[in-house]
């Protein structure tokens, strides 16, 4: 079934099935952390998660119908936002903690050992608190994640060729499906029409904060790489370079 013919319920169940499995860092933690060891753990985990993120994106109905160039650009634009939203979701029931993985949990104070990371931890914790206040539901979370992916590149790209225009139109229709799905998920919560509208507004406004934290995080990681605190390699290097060069 094409996504345009799917009900919002079907669409959500497809993106719920696309959710990546839980991932473990599987490293022996040498506590206390050093600046380098914490950055290495964070980047090792990010690199593993990125591989799963590509498979996740491909399972979002309609994503692989976009041009390959669009698929690449979208993922390169949003990967850190997606990682951060996943982190917020895992941390939502653990105030004051960031649950990077089941075997890698950090307190705000542990950010002290990496220069400049506490500011980012605080922004992540603040956005997580907002999601906690809003009692974010799993259905809403998966919709927001798909929205981040599909929205990430919309305002930086003007299609020129017929192929680009076609892919752009597909992208816009796909965003329609995701918005419909989020609206449907909110409608299931037993709220008044006005409360539903407000909730949609509050949830989508949080995405601008996530973009902001992601930009801060991208600058931080590229600084850490430049200062040789951490060795960035493989897929993570490719994704970081796309944002910094």
């Amino acid at each position: 079934v094409h996504h345009s013919a799917m009900s919002p319920e079907e669409f959500i169940s497809r993106i719920m099935e696309a959710e990546p499995p839980e991932i473990y860092l599987m490293e022996d933690m040498n506590k206390p952390f050093t600046e380098s060891s914490m950055m290495m753990s964070l980047t090792n985990l990010a690199d593993k998660e990125l591989v799963l993120m590509i498979s996740w994106a491909k399972k979002i109905p309609g994503f692989v119908e976009l041009s390959l160039a669009d698929q690449i650009h979208l993922l390169k634009c949003c990967w850190l936002e997606i990682l951060m939203l996943g982190l917020m979701w895992r941390s939502v029931d653990h105030p004051g903690k960031l649950i990077f993985s089941p075997d890698f949990k950090l307190n705000r104070e542990e950010g002290q050992c990496v220069e400049g990371i506490m500011e980012i931890f605080d922004m992540l914790l603040a956005a997580t608190s907002r999601f906690r206040e809003l009692k974010l539901q799993r259905e809403e979370y998966v919709c927001l994640k798909a929205m981040i992916l599909l929205n990430s590149y919309l305002c930086t790209n003007s299609p020129e060729t017929a192929e680009e225009l076609e892919s752009r139109n597909k992208l816009l229709r796909l965003l329609d499906s995701v918005i419909d799905a989020l609206v449907w998920a909110i409608s299931k919560l037993g709220l008044t029409t006005q409360q539903q509208t407000l909730r949609l507004g509050h949830l989508t406004m949080l995405l601008s904060h996530i973009r902001h934290v992601s930009n801060k995080g991208m600058d931080h990681l590229s600084t850490m790489k430049r200062k040789n605190v951490v060795l960035v390699y493989d897929l993570l290097l490719e994704m970081l370079d796309a944002n910094t060069t």
């Binding site: 390959l68 698929q71 993922l75 493989d234």
Partner: peptide, 13 residues
């Protein structure tokens, strides 16, 4: 071929 391109173009298992 980049790793991203490679992952995007491989068929799902």
């Amino acid at each position: 071929h980049t790793k991203l391109l490679q992952l995007l173009t491989t068929k799902p298992e």
